[in-house]
Design a binder for these strands. Sequence first.
DNA 1: GCATATGTATTGCTATCCGATACGGCTGCA
DNA 2: TGCAGCCGTATCGGATAGCAATACATATGC
Lengths: 262, 262
Amino acid sequence: MTENDHSDPSKGADGMFNQSLARGLSVLESFRDADRPLSLAQIASRTGLTRSAAQRLVHTLRKLGYLTLADDGRGFLLNLPILDLTHDYLRMNPVLRRASPVLLELRRQVQERVDLSLFDGVRMVYATRLQSKREAFFATLVGHSVPTTGSSGGWAALALLPDAEIDQILARAPLRPLTPRSLTDPDAIRAQIATARRDGHALALEQVLMGEVAIAMAIPDADGRPVGSVHVAGSLAEWAPEDFRRRMAPPLAEAIRGIRAS
Amino acid sequence: MTENDHSDPSKGADGMFNQSLARGLSVLESFRDADRPLSLAQIASRTGLTRSAAQRLVHTLRKLGYLTLADDGRGFLLNLPILDLTHDYLRMNPVLRRASPVLLELRRQVQERVDLSLFDGVRMVYATRLQSKREAFFATLVGHSVPTTGSSGGWAALALLPDAEIDQILARAPLRPLTPRSLTDPDAIRAQIATARRDGHALALEQVLMGEVAIAMAIPDADGRPVGSVHVAGSLAEWAPEDFRRRMAPPLAEAIRGIRAS
DNA sequence: GCATATGTATTGCTATCCGATACGGCTGCA
DNA sequence: TGCAGCCGTATCGGATAGCAATACATATGC
């Protein structure tokens, strides 16, 4: 007997693993990067499930409200109950709990956009955003992620890790540049991380969005490992990078202290 | 026939329903309203599962990343992959897709807080928020919900429904007031809905938050049923309610037209 | 140091999920 | 107009995959 394990590579015989649940969640996950409602066949194909399995799981997810038929009846979409989970996650996340009041105060002081992103290996996932006065765009939704290697918050987070781990992340990093100025050369990125180690914060120019300067500091956990970063972002039309750094670094550092404390 | 009624023991009757998936999701849902990490026993109790079942499902959800042990090792918490689902939901939601650029433009025009909430029967669920210049609080997270019967957006949405349906929602409504001024009397609420029908928008004073005035218009689907509402909220310290209405109603109406069109 | 909580692990039994197969409706190309 | 190919939906016998009871290691607190 030994093996079949056709569904999941990372696990051998695990008598406690519930395959049905995993398959059902893989159906929800199959909407990643989809840009239109997914048909049963597409879901089956994306998940590697048989058509029948996909059908039954979709049926179940619909009854539970997590999926719904698209407006035109062609394909399925994620549905509102997802946001209930979102709310529970955001509400109970210990970092966000501690950070919320601090971020508000930071935003009040700097009058620029303040973001918090969570460290997740090769990517930084945005959890909250407090817009600036005249925010010009909307692209960043909750759950949106950017490469750790190509954002101020990512550099600040990596600065807390030992070099060996940085190398691992660099090796796995998705090197799709978000802007023409996004760094992709590993050594250039290592240099930014080194700078972040020295300064205690990272400064990024047009790494995520053209015309944007961002400063970030990492939020360490009790063991000193990064759990996320707080960013302040401004416009290069209004700020010289060094002025921005000088102005923002102190209140940002204060905010990080406030988050660590509680 | 056609019952939904989750976790129905006596009647399987639905050979296509995957019980394991439903149970697994009920574990995720068990974090609703929890204010600290949940232990296995608590999860079992909240879901009605046996300890063993809860254990196996939690085990599976941890392997998949959806749950994690809390920092202090006591109990479990929802984890980052939830935000990936959030992102996919927000990104693909047809209403939000159409509304995003329109809301940005609205926010630019009115310079006050702009929210979009989704209609879900007795509650309105916040999906996006664009803060005002000097936002004073942070409480409203994505996925947060307020009673349909006690918010401007809810009144605007209900105004699109036939009276019979309104009565149903009023009957099921959670009448916990959010502020001392929150309406709880069904007839008073019906009056607000009638006003919203007449004006095409609803105006609410301190229904969700003290010191706040909010105006809302509903977003109808192709059949004229409400799918959500767009709100503009301001401070009573700066606005007389009627001035607020006169100033905000036209750009708000324009925004709704923009959302319907595309 | 006993009582009780936590999270973790094993096992035999069978309820539950599995996947091949079939159906009716709709779209769109010929 | 008709046929080909999707779409979502439904059925059913067989065995896999999940089930619940039970036991264990560790941590907390009275």
